[in-house]
Amino acid sequence: MLIPKYSGTLDLLGSASNGNGQDASKLSAIIEQARQAKVELVAQQKRLREEKAPKPLSAKDLRKMETKRFEEKTRVRHPNTSSILSRPHPIKGVRKIPVLVNARGLPFLRIKKPQPTNLSGVIRHKLERRWKRILRRDRLTIDLLFAKDEDSWDRMTGAQEPTTWARHYQLGLTEVFDQIRESDEAAAELAQKMWNVVLKERAMAEEEEKERRAKGDSLAGRD
């Protein structure tokens, strides 16, 4: 909307301020027209933004979206998913052999990338639990030294208690050592089972490759 120019704007303002009702009305109309023009301009700009074609996503943005969808899809383990140790399974096409990975002492089989979110969560939880046990072991080891000093002081002063200070820390230290040892032994046993899966997958992949080649040679001979 075009706003008409009014000649003698200062005269109009002066007249309106002196109480001229007609000029005051003209001045109000001009102000209202300016306000309406601003409202229409804002609305027009909004329509242009909405009608503007969206910018095509870059390859990086597409990868991010795909990764996010995969993370949401694999956040919870599917109830019908079989154990990784039940492999190998019959498949169609070329078999992809899993890779045995060592994540700071925790073994797992990587089938493909990206890694399922639920698997990452399990690995992170187990590693955090093991690290907490290591911290507790180190803390108890230091506390045990102080406790032995307390016991030595009690013997020197004849103020020995029914049980020693060191005994409580030694029991805790033995417990955490057993926990770490048991988890490490379980991880080693699991690693061996997973390695057996890899060997079986390799053997089956080789056998399937031989069958494909024999089938290809047979078809070529018919031609």
Results as ranks from 00 to 15, higher is better:
Ile3Asp: 10
Pro4Gly: 00
Pro4Asn: 07
Ser7Thr: 00
Leu12Gly: 04
Leu12Ile: 05
Gly14Phe: 03
Ala16Asn: 05
Ala16Pro: 08
Asn18His: 01
Asn20Phe: 01
Ser25Ala: 15
Ser28Tyr: 04
Ile30Gly: 08
Ile30Glu: 12
Ile30Phe: 13
Ile31Trp: 08
Glu32Asn: 11
Ala34Pro: 02
Ala34Arg: 12
Ala37Thr: 05
Val42Ser: 15
Arg49Lys: 10
Glu50Thr: 10
Glu51Val: 11
Glu51Lys: 14
Pro56Tyr: 05
Lys60Trp: 06
Glu71Cys: 13
Thr74Gly: 02
Arg75Asp: 15
His78Thr: 08
His78Gln: 03
Pro79Glu: 01
Ser83Arg: 04
Leu85Tyr: 07
Ser86Trp: 10
Pro88Ile: 11
Lys92Tyr: 08
Lys92Arg: 13
Lys92Ser: 12
Lys92Ala: 13
Arg95Asp: 04
Pro98Leu: 10
Val99Glu: 08
Val99Cys: 13
Ala103Gly: 00
Ala103Leu: 08
Arg104Ser: 14
Pro107Thr: 01
Ile111His: 10
Lys113Tyr: 14
Gln115Val: 14
Thr117Ser: 07
Ser120Ile: 12
Gly121Glu: 09
Arg124Thr: 05
Arg129Ala: 15
Lys132Trp: 08
Arg137Thr: 10
Asp138Ile: 04
Leu140Arg: 06
Ile142Thr: 02
Leu144Gln: 05
Leu145Pro: 05
Glu150Trp: 13
Ser152Gln: 07
Trp153Tyr: 13
Gln160Pro: 09
Ala166Leu: 04
Leu171Pro: 07
Gly172Glu: 07
Glu175Ala: 10
Phe177Cys: 10
Arg181Ser: 11
Glu185Gln: 14
Ala187Thr: 06
Leu190Tyr: 12
Lys193Phe: 00
Met194Gln: 12
Ala205Arg: 07
Glu206Met: 13
Glu207Val: 11
Arg212Pro: 06
Lys215Pro: 02
Gly216Cys: 03
Ser218Glu: 12
Gly221Val: 13
